[in-house]
């Protein structure tokens, strides 16, 4: 079987198209590259959706935690603490149990015992908590002068948040937020590894790498292939975030762009 055929058969295997059975012999490099690459679809799916939806909640959590009103502050603090304070796989375990019991009383939750919905919810809350803490740190570091200047111009309330607080917060948080995005993509490998069951051998990149390591008993080929894909993915994430960073800082003179890192490099 030529490599082109292999790609045709297995490139979309992870989402249920193509050959029904996984390769059972040969285990050529082509098969390994194709299937592990196919699994990357899930890693990207989880990563991108969780990151985008998590961003919204993260801003809400950060504003909540910085709020003077305990009614907003306390819940935000607890969500951030619980989701930042516990390992992801324990969150997966409890989420799976919770969705199982919910499913028995409300059929609406039927989809959530499957990874595509259930794990996404956990990853969404997880990244929202981590990013929320980063944004909260950034909120606290916004230079006083900026806020006072805004008030002096008569910019207040929602307008002030939209035009001053929010963009400055993003700018300050961006390096750390980039790191969080990288970690989130890494975390997506845990979904099938120690969280949710894999249906009909549709899994993520690590699932297929594990499959090949299991069949060939040689971990030195599939895992480096997985590493290779992740290096590409991380490079693209870093590249995209750098583009966004340039846009966020476009008003600054070129040499000042580097300097705008008031609380530099806090990871996650």
């Amino acid at each position: 079987m030529s490599c082109v055929e292999t790609i045709a058969d297995y490139a979309l295997r992870s989402i249920g198209f193509g050959e029904r059975l996984l390769p059972r012999e040969g285990y050529t490099l082509c098969q390994q590259f194709t299937l592990i690459g196919s699994g990357m679809i899930w890693n990207i799916y989880f990563g991108v959706l969780a990151l985008c939806s998590g961003f919204v909640l993260a801003v809400a959590l950060a504003v909540g935690k910085a709020s003077a009103n305990p009614l907003f502050r306390k819940p935000a603090e607890w969500v951030i603490f619980v989701f930042r304070g516990s390992p992801l796989f324990i969150q997966f375990f409890f989420a799976y149990l919770l969705f199982l019991s919910l499913k028995n009383s409300y059929p609406f939750f039927g989809a959530f015992t499957a990874a595509w919905a259930g794990a996404l919810v956990v990853l969404f809350l997880n990244t929202a908590a981590y990013s929320g803490e980063i944004f909260y740190g950034a909120l606290r570091s916004i230079p006083r002068g900026d806020m006072e200047a805004a008030e002096a111009y008569g910019i207040t309330g929602w307008n002030k948040f939209r035009r001053i607080t929010f963009p400055t917060m993003l700018r300050l948080a961006w390096p750390a937020y980039t790191n969080e995005a990288i970690f989130l993509f890494h975390a997506t490998t845990l979904v099938f590894f120690s969280g949710f069951p894999a249906w009909q051998q549709r899994g993520d990149a690590l699932y297929y790498a594990n499959y090949f390591a299991d069949k060939t008993f040689n971990p030195f080929v599939p895992y480096p292939i997985l590493a290779f894909y992740f290096i590409l993915l991380t490079l693209s994430v870093v590249g995209l975030f750098a583009l966004a960073s340039r846009r966020l800082n476009r008003h600054l003179p070129r040499e000042a762009r580097q300097k705008l890192r008031l609380r530099p490099n806090f990871l996650r």
């Binding site: 059975l21 996984l22 069951p197 894999a198 249906w199 009909q200 051998q201």
Partner: peptide, 10 residues
């Protein structure tokens, strides 16, 4: 996995 009609959950 090789059974035609069954759905495998791992």
């Amino acid at each position: 996995a090789s059974m035609e009609g069954a759905t495998l959950v791992e």
